[in-house]
Design a protein around this nucleic acid. Structure first.
Lengths: 335, 335
DNA sequence: GTGAAAGCGCTAACAT
DNA sequence: ATGTTAGCGCTTTCAC
């Protein structure tokens, strides 16, 4: 009696009148199985409600059938950033057609007893997508050493990292935004930056700076932000204090831009008449803001699906090239 | 030569000069191991860089060492709702002290080929936390049938569901909010509801309605929302059209409340002078809004950690009681 | 095309 | 306290 517990391949084979090997071949779509045998097995599977035991399979194939989405952030609020939530959902969706599970791995890489490194080194997953990488994280190192197929979503800061990545052209995006401001005749253009230990933060800052430099404008009006609304609001207040007559601001994320607009409103300034505001991401908040936010498109879903595609290639042992997606400015009411 | 591939328990045992069984006992913290032997094994583990093979272990223990966080929503934007992101992060954090992995399972339960049900029935995880349950989802049924330990975060709509849950007292929260509005002398109090096929949505609506009924006020000013900013803004517009002279609105989520405030501003109304606004959640957006939003506290982190605690109990085979956390009103500037 | 048999690495009786 | 032994359910040579 094998009737207790979940049915095994053995049960299926017995019921179909074939050997366990043949049953296994059917389950794994091996072509060399007589149609009649195949059908008998399929029927048995359906009748028994058979499901392969993942652990047993993994034990022999040495594959975990799962990929890790690594978020090297300790603060839970990262998820309220549409960038993270968008990528997480995008990755989940892109993986929906595969039998792969999404395992969420979150926390600071250096934290505690090195949980994250241990996990990544543990071979518990077949691949990894790293989402928000900071300069000092050195996750690329761990990944390189373990030869775990991996793709970064957002270029890793370290230039020596050899891990493939998918990113949006942050520099050009910032140039587009800033140039637009310059063309509108703005001359006192400030910026609220993202974290400078992340490539997205520093690339966007450089785009702003270079554009002002080329235009012969003052590029000293910069205040650091951290991509969060609170950080953006604080930066805006500092900016206003330093330079009450500024006439434009480029914020490195929509969340910060919207918060900055709030401060601007509170100070009695009109947008865009007194101060023009441009953000980055084209998040939902951009359309909802009033006036609607002019911003740079960050194609998050597309990046997520490209990252999954690259990872799948890597997992099949193929070499892949990093990809940088183009972007564009969406002009709405704020600038 | 066992030097190729990852070291196994066998290698560790050989190196430590003990049997595989003893090595296994050390790895699993079995107390009956002579200190000397234990140390030898520990040393061997360290020298070899041994990591237990999860699949092999799962195969015999019949445990997956992972729990599923189930999000029965198809739209990726759910993650931009601080409720989801907060719970997801909270669960992840609460599980950080355990060896359990978090597997993210997302999508509509009925979708496609029943991926989600199959997965849950597949025994791939040791437990599940279900986050945003809708009436027709029937996930509680699947869970009951498979006897997979599970806890709902947010009471399941179906009263017949026997799954333990953790929730905030949505009804009382709504009563608190509405009563406050009544006490302020507001008489034309509208509400923007959450989805009525979710308990949070319907409980908050009932709280509003009952309070107005008790106060002898008109309880007909209701427009459906869906917890999203866009939904909240649209509902506010409809409300304004129906009743231009309304003097207060209770929105079932902060995201909707903030969006509603935007519409109110756009229509030239002053908050709270012309119209008072109260939200629900006490999300970050509430503090950032201007004026800052008066709202009902939704103790998301606490709920997440309680849910994990209950789930762990269930996984140990112990019975647990559902928990309903109390809430309170935070008065800020909007009402 | 199919079956027999050998493990994958581990835990858990069962002896000792 | 420790070793021996028997699987867990599956894939995969290797014969036939």
């Amino acid at each position: 009696m094998t009737s207790r517990g979940a049915p095994t391949l053995e049960d299926v084979a017995a019921r179909a009148g074939v050997s366990r090997a043949t049953a296994s071949r059917v389950v794994n779509d091996d072509p060399r199985v007589r149609p009649a045998a195949r059908e008998a097995v399929m029927a048995a599977i359906a009748e028994l409600g058979y499901r392969p035991n993942r652990a047993a399979r993994s034990l022999v194939t040495r594959e975990a059938d799962s990929i890790a989405v690594v978020v090297p952030e300790s603060d839970e609020r990262v998820f309220s950033d549409p960038f993270f939530s968008g990528t997480l959902a995008g990755v989940t969706r892109a993986l929906a057609d595969t039998p792969l599970q999404v395992v969420l791995v979150m926390g600071r890489p250096g934290d505690g007893d090195g949980r994250m490194e241990r996990y990544l080194r543990g071979g518990h997953t077949d691949g990894a997508i790293v989402v928000s990488h900071h300069r000092e994280d050195n996750l690329w190192r761990v990944l390189e050493e373990t030869r775990l197929p991996a793709v970064f979503l957002g270029r890793p800061y370290a230039p020596q990292a050899r891990v493939p990545y998918v990113d949006v052209d942050n520099f050009t995006g910032a140039v587009l935004a800033t140039r637009y401001l310059v063309e509108q005749g703005r001359t006192r253009i400030a910026t609220i930056t993202g974290p400078q230990d992340m490539s997205a933060g520093s690339d966007r800052f450089r785009g702003w700076r270079e554009t002002l430099r080329v235009g012969g404008l003052d590029a000293s009006l910069v205040e650091p932000g951290d991509f969060t609304p609170a950080g953006g609001a604080a930066a805006m207040r500092r900016l206003l204090q330093r330079r009450p007559d500024l006439d434009a601001v480029f914020a490195a994320s929509d969340l910060m831009a919207v918060a900055a607009m709030g401060e601007l409103h509170a100070s009695g300034r009109k947008i865009p008449d007194d101060v023009a505001v441009v953000g980055f991401d084209d998040a939902e908040a951009a359309q909802l803001a009033r006036p609607p936010l002019t911003t740079v498109v960050n194609p998050i879903s597309e990046m997520a699906s490209r990252a999954v595609a690259l990872l799948l290639e890597r997992m099949h042992g193929r070499a892949v090239e990093s990809e940088v997606l183009t972007t564009r400015l969406v002009v709405r009411g704020s600038a």
